[in-house]
Simulated assay, not measured.
Amino acid sequence: MLSHNLLVNTGNILSLSEARQKASQNSTDELIETLKIILNDNQNKGDGTIVINGKEDTSLQDVDRKDLKITVKVFISSPDVHSLKEALDQTFKTLNTNVIESLVIAYKSDEEPENMLSSLKKIWSAVEEYIKVDKLSSVGLSDINTNIFIELFQWADIKPNIVQINLTTCCAVPPALQEFTKENDIQLLTHSDSYEILPQEMLEGIFGSTAHLRWLIRYQIHLKCRGILSSKGYLLYINKSSFKI
C-alpha cells in the first residue's frame, strides 16, 4: 500500500473573486468552494508530502507585524498531541510569524465526559508549552460542555481565557457558563461553524475515498488600527492511501 500526505494551503481566499461573490455562505460551504477553486488534477502519486498552494498573499508584505492581529481556529478530532503541534507549527511557518494572538481549539469527539476531559487535558498540556514561550496569547476552546470546561479550567496551570459557543445549535448561553466566564474574566464568544466543518463524505468527494483529515486550520489576519480583515485562509493536512498492484 502506498500512502502520501497532502498539505493544502488555500492562501488568502479574500483574493479569490469566486469566493468573494458567495460571502453569505457558511464556513463549510466556503471551504468546499475554496478547495474546488484551488485544487487541480495534477496531484502527484507516491510516498511523501505533497503541498498544494493557493494564490500567494502579498497584501501584508509591507505592513508592520505589530499592526496585525492573527486569530486561528484549529479543528481536530483526535487528542494526538503530535498532530496538534504539527498544525500549530505549520501555521507559524505559513504565516511567517512567531506569535498568534488568539487561538481557539475545536475538538470534535463523541467520547464520554470522563474520556473527553482526559483528552482535553492532553491537548491543553501541549497548548501550555506554546503559551510559556510566548507563542500564543489568548487561547480557548469551542463548543465544550460547561462542567467539562470548568473542570479543565480548575485543573490547568495556565487557564483558558476564551470559550466559544455555537448559537445556531444552542439558542441561549447556559447560565452556569455565563456566570463562570464573568467571574473569571473569560471571553465568551459565539460562532456559526458547522459541528463538522469538513464532513467525511465531502472530504472523500474532493480527495478520494481513502482520504483522512488529520487537522484543519482557519486563520484570519486583521489590521488592528482599523479592525479590517485583510487575509483569511485555510490549512489542511490530509492522509491518503492506495493499494499498489
Rank of each mutant, 00 (worst) to 15 (best):
M1G: 13
L2I: 14
H4A: 05
N5F: 15
N9Q: 11
T10S: 02
S15P: 04
S17C: 03
S17K: 13
A19K: 11
S24W: 13
S24N: 12
N26T: 05
T28K: 13
E30H: 09
L31W: 07
L31M: 05
I32M: 05
I32N: 08
L35V: 02
K36E: 12
K36N: 10
K36T: 07
I38A: 02
L39G: 13
N40R: 14
N40D: 10
N40C: 07
N42V: 13
Q43R: 15
G46P: 07
G48M: 12
E56R: 14
D57W: 01
T58M: 09
S59I: 15
V63P: 15
V63M: 04
T71H: 04
V72S: 00
V72A: 05
V74K: 00
V74C: 13
F75T: 07
I76V: 02
I76M: 06
I76E: 00
S77G: 12
S77N: 12
H82T: 12
L84V: 04
L84E: 00
K85M: 03
E86G: 09
L88E: 01
L88D: 08
K93P: 01
T97D: 06
E101W: 06
V104T: 06
N115R: 06
L117V: 05
W124K: 01
W124Q: 00
A126W: 00
A126G: 02
A126Y: 00
E128M: 09
K132V: 07
D134E: 09
K135A: 10
S137D: 09
G140N: 10
S142W: 00
N147D: 09
I148K: 03
E151M: 11
F153L: 07
Q154W: 01
A156P: 00
A156S: 08
D157C: 08
D157Q: 11
K159N: 08
V163N: 01
I165W: 01
I165L: 06
T168N: 11
C170Q: 14
C171T: 15
V173Q: 03
P175V: 05
Q178G: 05
F180V: 10
K182R: 14
L189D: 10
S192R: 05
S194Y: 03
S194D: 15
E196A: 08
L198Y: 04
P199W: 10
Q200P: 09
G205T: 08
I206P: 03
G208H: 04
H212E: 14
R214Q: 15
R214S: 13
W215T: 03
I217M: 05
R218T: 11
Y219K: 04
Q220L: 07
K224R: 06
C225Y: 09
S231Q: 09
K232Q: 07
L235S: 01
L236Y: 00
Y237A: 12
I238T: 06
N239M: 09
K240G: 08
S241Y: 12
K244G: 15
I245F: 12
